[in-house]
Design a binder for these strands. Structure first.
Lengths: 142, 142
DNA sequence: GTGCTTGCAAACGTTTTGCAGACTC
DNA sequence: GAGTCTGCAAAACGTTTGCAAGCAC
């Protein structure tokens, strides 16, 4: 999925191709890491200082509807956005805040187990799984 | 854990026993369900209309420090509070919003699996596990 | 009387919205 | 020219904070 694919989807959806939209999309596709709306806005503004945070939010919302990006909440604070194509589950440490990414597939046994026992299909896209990472677990042993 | 136990803990911690504190605690202990701060404030105000939402937040914060209550975030919207003694994991359906509670222990196999594979101790206290419940899964089969 | 607690108002950080003008098609 | 998109300002939302007065101990 590259820029032109997404632009095509936007058009198909009745959307216009504007400079802010292109700039936001470009930044999003280039910077692979998850980013908050504010961080993305900052990045976009390096080239186009007038692009407003509300425009960033509106474009992210549209891209989310189109299935291009997805947002995830870590512990507290702002949502982070990343490409849907790189979907994965986030393990966020509630002690140090570190975020690990694991492929959704690797959780399949867990997911199956919960489905079997509770008829519930876990799909932790929008919220990270919180817990304690190994480093912090070791540090707190004392 | 009843009202007097908690009051004793508060005192031990250097806290005072005030009317708002008692009222908030009573409402919290009586209404077993998880509640948002706003809902709790509303309940408390039925008897004591002047108790302010900020007092509710401050008391919830203190009770959380004492290990009496715990807060959990569902999909979006305000945090919900419930008694720590009834700790459980929340499975929240992202379609209908329904919240199921399952004992933490029942997730042990899942938790062990993640620990083994990622050296990460999942502890989904503060954020619900999101997914799709069986009813909504059935409805979307069409 | 010390110092914790309260109500109030105001601020906070993140996100959404109403609007008038500007733009794409 | 119809209808989408933008920047701006303001509002919304849930939550936190500073403060002066009030109360528990």
């Amino acid at each position: 999925m590259d820029e032109n694919d997404v632009i095509a989807m936007v058009k198909l959806n009745g959307g216009r191709v504007t400079m802010p939209r292109r700039a936001i999309l470009k930044s999003l596709l280039n910077a692979k890491e998850h980013m908050t709306a504010e961080e993305l806005a900052k990045l976009v503004r390096e080239k186009y200082p007038d692009i407003h945070i509300s425009t960033v939010y509106r474009n992210l919302e549209e891209l989310e509807k189109l299935g291009v990006v997805i947002h995830t909440h870590f512990l507290h604070g702002p949502a982070t956005y990343h490409l849907e194509s790189e979907i994965h589950v986030h393990l966020v440490c509630e002690v140090c805040g570190n975020v690990a990414e694991v492929p959704l597939d690797s959780l399949n046994p867990f997911i199956r187990e919960i489905k079997k026992n509770f008829s519930f299909s876990v799909n932790p896209k929008h919220f990270a799984l919180q817990g304690v990472c190994s480093i912090c677990a070791k540090n707190s042993e004392n």
